[in-house]
Computed example of a mutant assay.
Amino acid sequence: MASEDATGDDATVRAYDPSRDWQALWERKERFERELGGGKDDATTVRYEAKLTDDYRERYRAWVENCVEREPGCVVVATDADDRVVGYAFVLPEDLSLVWDAAVLNELYLDEDWRGTGAADALMDAAVAHARDQDLPIDRMVLDVDPDNDRASGFYEKRGFEPWAEMVAYDLS
Rank of each mutant, 00 (worst) to 15 (best):
Met1Phe: 06
Ala2Ser: 09
Ser3Pro: 09
Glu4Arg: 14
Glu4Ala: 11
Asp5Ser: 09
Thr7Ser: 11
Asp10Phe: 13
Asp10Glu: 14
Ala11Arg: 13
Thr12Met: 14
Val13Ile: 08
Arg14Pro: 06
Arg14Ser: 06
Asp17Trp: 04
Asp21Ser: 03
Trp22Asn: 01
Ala24Asp: 02
Glu27Val: 00
Phe32Gln: 03
Phe32Tyr: 08
Glu33Gly: 04
Glu33Pro: 04
Glu33Val: 11
Glu35Ala: 06
Leu36Phe: 04
Asp41Leu: 10
Asp41Thr: 12
Asp41Ile: 11
Asp42Ile: 09
Ala43Leu: 15
Thr44Leu: 10
Arg47Asp: 13
Arg47Tyr: 14
Glu49Arg: 12
Glu49Ser: 15
Lys51Ala: 07
Thr53Asn: 02
Thr53Pro: 03
Asp55Met: 08
Tyr56Gln: 04
Arg57Lys: 11
Arg59Asp: 11
Arg59Pro: 00
Tyr60Arg: 10
Tyr60Thr: 09
Ala62Lys: 06
Val64Asn: 04
Asn66Gly: 15
Asn66Ile: 01
Cys67Pro: 03
Glu69Asp: 11
Arg70Thr: 09
Gly73Pro: 01
Val76Glu: 09
Ala78Met: 04
Ala78Asp: 06
Ala78Tyr: 02
Thr79Phe: 12
Asp80Phe: 12
Val85Ala: 06
Val86Ala: 11
Val86Phe: 07
Gly87Tyr: 01
Ala89Pro: 02
Ala89Lys: 01
Phe90Trp: 10
Phe90Gly: 05
Val91Asn: 10
Pro93Trp: 06
Pro93His: 07
Glu94Gly: 09
Asp95Thr: 14
Leu96Glu: 05
Ser97Glu: 00
Val99Ile: 15
Val99Trp: 12
Trp100Thr: 15
Ala102Cys: 10
Ala103Asn: 04
Leu105Glu: 04
Leu105Gly: 01
Asn106Gly: 15
Glu107Val: 07
Leu108Ala: 01
Leu110Gly: 03
Leu110Met: 13
Asp111Thr: 11
Asp111Leu: 14
Asp113Leu: 13
Thr117Gly: 12
Thr117Pro: 12
Thr117Glu: 10
Gly118Tyr: 13
Gly118Cys: 13
Gly118Asp: 14
Ala119Thr: 06
Ala119Phe: 09
Ala119Asn: 07
Ala119Ile: 08
Ala119Asp: 02
Ala120Ile: 10
Ala120Cys: 03
Asp121Asn: 07
Ala122Cys: 07
Leu123Asp: 03
Asp125Glu: 08
Asp125Met: 02
Ala126Met: 06
Ala127Asp: 00
Ala129Glu: 15
Ala129Asp: 15
Ala129Arg: 03
Ala131Trp: 01
Arg132Val: 03
Arg132Asp: 12
Arg140Leu: 09
Val142Asp: 08
Leu143Ile: 08
Leu143His: 08
Asp144Trp: 11
Asp144Thr: 11
Val145Gly: 05
Val145Asp: 04
Asp146Tyr: 05
Pro147Cys: 04
Arg151Lys: 11
Arg151Asp: 14
Ala152Arg: 02
Ser153Glu: 12
Ser153Ala: 15
Gly154Glu: 01
Glu157Phe: 01
Glu157Asp: 10
Glu157Arg: 12
Lys158Thr: 06
Lys158Ala: 14
Lys158Glu: 06
Arg159Phe: 03
Glu162Arg: 15
Pro163Phe: 13
Pro163Ser: 10
Pro163Thr: 04
Trp164Cys: 08
Trp164Ala: 14
Ala165Gly: 06
Ala165Val: 11
Val168Asn: 12
Asp171Thr: 09
Asp171Phe: 10
Asp171Gly: 02
